[in-house]
């Protein structure tokens, strides 16, 4: 009954979804539903096809002379701006990682200090870090770092083309079980995120990113 009600609500939104005017949380809810409901998904596909047809009526007109030349110049400029931004972001990521490492070293020092002085919870030793490349179709699209501690932490940086949207981070654990540890936004290909882990760091063997639709985007294998 609840499922039927969900379908009825979703179908109310499908025309606007197909026409590309549904945005924000509404669009995410529809995409989530479609990934789990074949009946609504078939209905959505039919409406998207109708929209495809409708766009064939879009009026045509010759652009002004020089349009192509200006477009190519603009693309070159866009590439240069992007390269400059990548260099800036690279410096920023290195700064963040350095600051993270420094903070963790400080935490480790405090922990050891607490152990030596006999105050606070005891710790078994220094913080350990493991890192791996985040890969998508064989391409490096970011980095994952898992830190031991109480709690353990996961850090992630992403450079994924020009894709934008909310992604979920799923960690894989020894034995193959998986657990979602949160979600974050990727904007124009870039995103950075950190979260405490509900399990010890040593249990984590990998991490993956999934789009709101459940489509896998990238994964990382962490050596143990």
């Amino acid at each position: 009954m609840a499922e039927e009600l969900g379908c009825a609500l979703i179908r109310d939104e499908l025309p606007e979804f197909a026409l590309g005017v549904l945005s924000g949380p509404g669009r995410e809810i529809v995409i989530d539903h479609l990934s789990n409901c074949s009946a609504c998904s078939a209905e959505a596909e039919a409406m998207v096809r109708a929209t495809d047809l409708l766009f064939r009526l879009a009026p045509e007109a010759d652009p002004p002379p020089g349009f192509e030349v200006r477009l190519l110049e603009r693309h070159e400029q866009s590439l240069r701006s992007r390269a400059a931004r990548n260099r800036r972001d690279g410096r920023r990521v290195r700064t963040v990682l350095a600051a993270t490492a420094a903070a963790l070293a400080l935490l480790a020092g405090v922990g050891i200090g607490m152990l030596v002085s006999g105050t606070g919870p005891s710790r078994s030793g220094a913080v350990a870090m493991r890192s791996a490349e985040l890969a998508s179709d064989g391409h490096d699209v970011g980095n994952v770092v898992v830190e031991s501690g109480h709690p353990a932490w996961l850090f992630m940086t992403v450079d994924y083309g020009s894709w934008s949207g909310r992604v979920s981070c799923i960690v894989t654990m020894r034995g193959g079980s998986r657990m979602s540890v949160g979600s974050f936004m990727i904007l124009d290909g870039y995103g950075g995120w950190a979260a405490p882990l509900p399990v010890p760091a040593r249990m984590v063997t990998g991490a993956r990113l999934e789009a709101a639709s459940g489509k896998p985007l990238a994964h990382a294998s962490l050596s143990t």
Partner: peptide, 25 residues
């Protein structure tokens, strides 16, 4: 508008998803 649209298509070409409709759409 047309130039910006085509630049975005070019930039986003790697993530075009055919399941979401035809290229023209």
């Amino acid at each position: 508008v047309a130039q910006e649209a085509l630049i975005r298509v070019w930039r986003h070409a790697p993530v075009y998803d055919a399941r979401r409709g035809a290229v023209a759409t």
